[in-house]
Every structure is written in C-alpha cells, then in structure tokens.
Write a protein that binds this DNA or RNA. Structure first.
Length: 506
RNA sequence: GGUCCCGUCAUCUAGCGGCCUAGGAUGGUAGCCUUUCAAGCUGCUCACGCGGGUUCGAAUCCCGUCGGGACCA
C-alpha cells in the first residue's frame, strides 16, 4: 500500500469545533504515523458562513494544536488550489461531463412540486426521497420546461435495485440498498455544486486515499462511491482536469472511509454550544495546553489499551491507529480534560509554566506588557507554588493576584473569620516584630519564626498562619504561606500586616 | 416514515468465546497527611438495556425487543 494521503476539509464558519478538531487530529496522526501526507482543504463555498475571520480562526486553531499541514492554504502543494471556492469551475465541468455521459440528468421540478411529492409519499407510508420523475425527459420536454421559465438542477442517477457494500475502517462492512438512495442533486439551480459533488471530486482530484470524517456523513457514502465510479471509470475526471488546467491526479487507489463516532455532551446529544465551550479557541483561552487537548481529543473515541491514557504527541503518532477507534459515541468530558491538564501542568518545568502563565497575568492586568524583569522574576518564583493547585492556566492569576497588586483588597468574609476573631491582633503584632528582625528572609526562617509565635502564644499553627495570610493576601486561600512570603519583598509584607492592623483598629 | 449506527460502574472507557467473582480513569465520598487551598496516599462507590437462542462455556456470536443518535426528507 502506498503512503496515505489524508485530508481535513473544514467549513471555516468560525473557530474550529472540538469535534472537527478531533477529526483533523485523527487524520493528521494517521498521516504522521504512516509517512503520509496531510492535506488541508478549506470548504468555503458557502459565502454566508465562510467568513475571513472564520478562515483565520480555523487555521489558527489547527496551528495551536500543532496540526501542521503538508499541502493546503498558505503552504501550497501540487494539487491546488486548496480553497474550494476557487475550484468551482472544475466542479461545474465535471457535472457537465456527467450530464453528457448520461450519468446525470436535468430535473425541473419546482420546490412546491417536490414538496407535494414528498407529502404524498409520506401519506402513503413510502420513503420521502425523490422519485426520479424527470429522469427520462425528452429534449422537447426540457425545452418546454425552460420556456416556462423553470430552472434545472442536475441530479445523479442512482441504481434502482441491488445494494452497495463497502468496508468502513471503523464499522466494518456496511450495506445500503440502492432503492433507498434517491437520485441526488449535484448542481443547484443557480449552477453551484453541492457538497457531495465538490467534496467527492476534490478528494479524487487530490488523490486522497483515506477519508476519516464524522459519522453524520456515513449515509452519504454510497453516493460518493457511485460518483467516484462514474467520474473515474471512463477517465472522465482526467479529461476534465486536463481541460480545466488542473494537475493530473496522483496515481493512487480509491479512498477508504472511516466514520468517526460523534462527540456528544452529557445528555448524549451531539456536542453543541448548549454544552458550554465547544471551540478550540475557547479551550485555549481557558488555559488548556495544546498537547493535553490533543491527548484528550485522541481519547474521544480511541484507546490504546485498558489503562494508558496519557500520551505525548509523539506517543500518539507512534501509537494511534484506526483499528482502535470505537464505534460508540464519545462523551466530551470536560472534567477529565481538566484532570489531564492539571496533571500535565504539575509535570511542567516551572520556568516553562511561568512563560505559559505570562499572557494570562498580562491579560488580568497583573503584569505590564511587556512585564518588567522584577515582575517576571516574581512570576517565576511563584510558578512552583502554583503548579499543583491549578488545572488550567487561567486559574493561576486569582490565587496570587495580591502578590502583584499595589493594594490588597480585603475580603470581608476572610477578615471576619480570621482577623476579627481569637487573638489575631496579637499574632499580627508578633509577626510584625519577628519579620522585621528576621536575618534571612527565606521560607525556612519565616516558617521558624511563625512557629515560634504559635508556641509563644500557645495556639496552633492554623491560628497563626491564617491571620497572617489574610493580612497579607486579603483572603483565606493562597499558596503555602512561608514560601509565598519569601518570594515577596519584605517591606511589602510588613506594609500589608500594618494595614491589616489599622483595619482592625478602625 | 425509511435507512444506517450505537447500548458495560454515577460518567467515560478496556473487553473481539474461557485470562472477567469484568480492568483503568474521571467524578463523588471517607480516612491519613496538613498552615489555607491543593497535591499525595488508602478505602468505598461494582456496571455488561431486556428476552430468547447457539455453545461444555457469552459482555463477547445469532434473533427479537426496547432505548438513544445520525442521515434522508
């Protein structure tokens, strides 16, 4: 078998949906793992949905995930153009050739007539598909329809009987009876190609050998196979390609199909905006790492064995295979994604984590843009403390915002609970004194003097640490106190303790 | 309405005729640890939609049924 040529063909109607991202990932992994070629073809024929912003967002999402394409927009390749909107003349020419060869025909029914036909069929309990009424019109009939001002669509003729059996890489043998596949439209009345024609022709023209796509396209597969039969058997496509000035298609076998299980929400319905975030860009914004997203997406439908679930991207390339893609719907479990992300963050080199965190802190206004050397240093010092308490990058800033702010914002609840109670005032006085006199401003020494304070006052660590924490941070939750204080400026810490004392006095 | 796909713990998933008294993970929960929050460790949470059949033996194969989804309109 030759090396695979796979493609990802998104409609650029906004940022990439995670379901589509998974499709892209599987294709990409298949190509990378088998020495193949990953082709990106943008299906931007629907002018209303395909916006320039959507196009940019789609490419950005793919790049964020690391899914670089070998052929496609902005990188080119021998079988372009790779934007479907620029290939319309090819699709139209193929439709015309199909018409001339008798595989397709013009049909003139109006929308109302088709509607009536459908209702009649439903009423009689028959399937509602097109009945093929205009299959065998004479030239004269066609002329007379045209004279009435009717416009024709072009339909591809499907067999009346027999069945089509094909092997789906994931589902095995799938059978469709031709009687259930009505003649389908390949060219609309306005002359524009439909999805099956455009995608089918482009896949063949680009020499795609393996098509992994959503399960929703399973039932259109017989049409595409039929179309491919007609387009290929007579050398029809090759002639059109040449006539239209396109590169001859590569000499490869016909595409095999893999229909991926749907991604669903917790209610088992297809994943949509109702379920929360669905765009790759959104997960990126929330601070999920691209490798983790790829890891998680790979697991949505694929498994390696009965226990391994953490993979690096090179692991995935080496281990991914369509053999182990399941056929039941995959639940997009955000909790699991968060857990994976948290695990990966813990493993990150703290310096790397600090770099990853920087944009989020800038976004929150905690760091200047660009950050000063001191700010950057502080973030680097804080990174190891943050590491095991966050699952996403966006969660870090709220934990340590007080380290960067000029003024602490005291939370009433924390103040009431830890400063206005017990012997907080004594603790603060003691902390003020010992911190001021401390020789070495490091975590160990701070820990030691705080323990001394506890002992002297005869209270537990909690009763000592919490008032100090609230005094300095303004809230009851923070990374470990001595370690955090140690990376801060001692003067700042003392100021905070004094302002807390004032707060209590007032 | 028709065609196609799918149905294992609370959730996702492994399972492809004996290795299954069904494994892993997530979530929840209890305990330990503990300066808060986490993290970590230990335990609990125990499931093959239902009914037939094939077989010495079925989660695994077959038939039916119920349920969910996709597509066609």
């Amino acid at each position: 078998m030759s090396t695979p040529r796979v493609r990802f063909a998104p409609a650029p109607s906004g940022s990439l949906h995670v379901g589509n991202a998974r499709t892209a990932l599987y294709n990409w992994l298949h190509a990378r793992g088998n020495g193949g070629t990953f082709v990106l073809r943008v299906e931007d024929t629907d002018a209303e949905r395909a916006t320039p912003e959507g196009y940019e967002a789609t490419l950005a999402a793919l790049r964020f995930l690391g899914l670089e394409w070998d052929e496609g927009p902005e990188v080119g390749g021998p079988y372009g153009p790779y934007r479907q909107s620029k290939r319309q003349s090819l699709h139209e020419a193929v439709a015309t050739a199909l018409l001339e060869a008798g595989y397709a025909y013009e049909a003139f029914e109006t929308r109302e007539e088709l509607e009536a036909e459908r209702e009649a069929a439903q009423a009689q309990g028959r399937p509602p598909g097109y009945q093929g009424g205009h299959r065998d019109l004479t030239d004269a009939q066609r002329e007379s329809f045209r004279a009435e001002g009717r416009e024709a669509v072009v339909r591809l003729r499907t067999p009346d009987e027999g069945e089509l059996v094909f092997t789906d890489v994931i589902r095995g043998e799938v059978t469709f009876a031709w009687k259930d596949v009505p003649d389908f439209v390949i060219l609309r009345a306005d002359g524009s190609p439909t999805y099956p024609l455009a995608a089918g022709v482009d896949d063949l023209a680009m020499g795609i050998t393996f098509i992994a796509r959503g399960e929703d396209l399973l039932s259109t597969t017989p049409r595409q196979i039929l179309l491919a039969d007609h387009v290929l058997d007579e050398g029809l496509l090759d002639r059109v390609l040449e006539a239209e000035g396109y590169a001859p298609r590569p000499d490869v076998e016909r595409p095999r199909y893999a229909h991926l299980p749907l991604l669903v929400g917790e209610d088992r319905k297809p994943l949509s905006k109702r379920h929360g975030a669905v765009a790759v860009a959104e997960f990126r914004r929330q601070g999920f790492l691209p490798d983790v997203l790829a890891n998680f997406l790979a697991l949505c439908g694929w498994s390696y064995d009965d226990r391994t679930e953490r993979f690096t991207v090179p692991d995935l390339i080496a281990k991914f295979s369509f053999d182990r893609v399941g056929s039941n719907p995959a639940f997009f479990d955000v909790d699991k994604l968060r857990a994976l992300n948290g695990d990966r963050i813990k493993e990150l080199d703290p310096a790397e984590l600090a770099d990853d965190l920087e944009p989020y802190f800038v976004e929150e206004g905690l760091l200047d843009q660009p950050p000063s050397a001191a700010q950057r240093q502080l973030l680097h010092d804080l990174a190891p403390l943050l590491q095991e308490r966050i699952q996403t990058l966006a969660e870090a800033a709220p934990l340590v915002d007080w380290c960067f702010a000029d003024e602490v914002a005291y939370e009433d609840k924390a103040v009431d609970k830890h400063l206005r109670k017990g012997r907080a005032d004594e603790v603060l006085d003691a902390a003020d004194a010992v911190f001021t006199e401390l020789d070495d401003w490091d975590a160990e020494s701070i820990m030691a003097v705080l323990d001394e304070v506890s002992e002297r006052l005869g209270i537990g660590r909690g009763k000592t640490f919490q008032p100090v924490r609230v005094a300095v941070a303004g809230k009851a939750v923070s990374p470990p106190l001595p370690e955090t204080l140690a990376v801060l400026d001692r003067g700042l810490v003392l100021d905070r303790i004094r302002s807390a004392k004032q707060l209590l006095g007032a």
